[in-house]
Nucleic acid binder design. Sequence first.
DNA 1: CAATATTATATTGCGCGCAATGTAATATTG
DNA 2: CAATATTACATTGCGCGCAATATAATATTG
Lengths: 146, 146
Amino acid sequence: MRMSQEYEQLLLKNQLCFPMYACSRKIVGSYTPYLKPLGLTYTQYIVMMVMWEKESVNVGQLGEILYLDAGTLTPLLKRLENAGYVTRQRSKEDERITIISITPEGEALKEKCRDIPAKMTEGGTSLTEKDARELYRLLYLFLNDK
Amino acid sequence: MRMSQEYEQLLLKNQLCFPMYACSRKIVGSYTPYLKPLGLTYTQYIVMMVMWEKESVNVGQLGEILYLDAGTLTPLLKRLENAGYVTRQRSKEDERITIISITPEGEALKEKCRDIPAKMTEGGTSLTEKDARELYRLLYLFLNDK
DNA sequence: CAATATTATATTGCGCGCAATGTAATATTG
DNA sequence: CAATATTACATTGCGCGCAATATAATATTG
């Protein structure tokens, strides 16, 4: 007996969001063995990646780059500050703005993270180089657009 | 000045995980306008999707299907139980097992969710049908494999 | 320039998501 | 069959992730 069109769309296997959600958690989780020894979470890691590129940003810019809001970033940045990797200080020109700056310890952390990307790919995906490129393209299409 | 291969991989734009993570949150978030009026979170919604297909499952099976563990599922299932959508009872054959069963209210909820998939696609992605299929394939490749 | 609006961040509250640990029931093993 | 191991969930603790609200500083407006 055939299901109606509407109800058929409610089947898990017909969803695009679900595999995205599951995939994301799976990959984020696969970083843990490399990040936990450094005392980092995945979100802290991507914040540090931004810091390695920028050296200094404010909370709003960080949020735009990472698609995260102050409710997530503020406590996370306080933890990175406590760990000694960044400093948080109000801008002198506009006291509403909090400027996040990387410390020497934060810079040093970059070296400890140096091999993580290689270790992550090394396990080996069944994704070919071409598939990976295609996946990348489609994800950014979704991300920039809808 | 050129960056070393290792450090270049630490650039956010060279990561596959980051867009997946951001994309996942973005799509999950786009469900909120439709789920919140029903008092559901996205995770509760996909649990209910399983219940609509199975009528009765135990916690372990639910975890396998959704890639979630008991630490996440137990409190979530208690909330769905309090909302009246499922029941939780120990199996008589094996008292370690908790059986989750859908209630008539849970079945009724399916009708209220009927139009959600259509509403989700309707906003319109720049993804073509072909791109969506390709994305689906690549996500499941990642999910089943690595 | 005082009143109002806007902006940037912080705070609060709640529901995940997951590692680690606990607990009770069932399986296995000597 | 008693001791031990394993299994299936439950609990605890912590860090997000985000909506809603608060707060303080700056911009705008009449």
